[in-house]
Amino acid sequence: MTDERALVRQIQNGDPSAFADLVEQYKKKVYYLALDLHGNHHDAEDLSQEVFMKAYRGIRGFRGDSKIGSWLYRITVNTYLGSKKKKADQIVMLVDKKSDNDIDPLEARDEVTGNPERAVVSRRINEHVTAALQQLSQQERTVFVMRHYHDMPLKEISDTLNVAEGTVKSLLFRSIRKLRQRLSFYKEELGLEDPAK
């Protein structure tokens, strides 16, 4: 029996410390997926906690057909797609409209601990990219972040979303083209040259 299966069995038998171990093992992966989907820290933490609570409630039904990580990803994506906050996500906070007071304290950390110039550029890129991502539809964003930032194979994405692999590719194609439109004028400003040209 693998360690993972043993851990699941322990949780299914009601061992709370085993569940704590599971959370410890997967909290970063789930949080970062939630962050990529929601685009802000507060919703990301909220979603990631919700995922673990759902996992705890449903762990007895987990039969081990997939890896526990894939199962948690599936819960994350399904919870996100069903989230009541989806309308709120449509309201995109564009960088230029932000005041200094709006800066996320987490994003400001680089400015304190590292190179301030680099931190500013990095923060701007993050803001631009996050804003562009938030303008995708929920499905497009989900497919894009799963493939691009979490390196999930297309097959796994199609299984998670319960859609055909061809649909996943179409969504990816569409999302990248939309991102291109959103970022086209930022690109030059940021001095990111396209090596293909």
Partner: peptide
């Protein structure tokens, strides 16, 4: 264009 877009997306650093 799509390749260059992905390069821009790669620059993102999650806090």
């Amino acid at each position: 264009e799509m390749r260059s877009t992905l390069l821009v997306m790669e620059k993102r650093e999650r806090p």
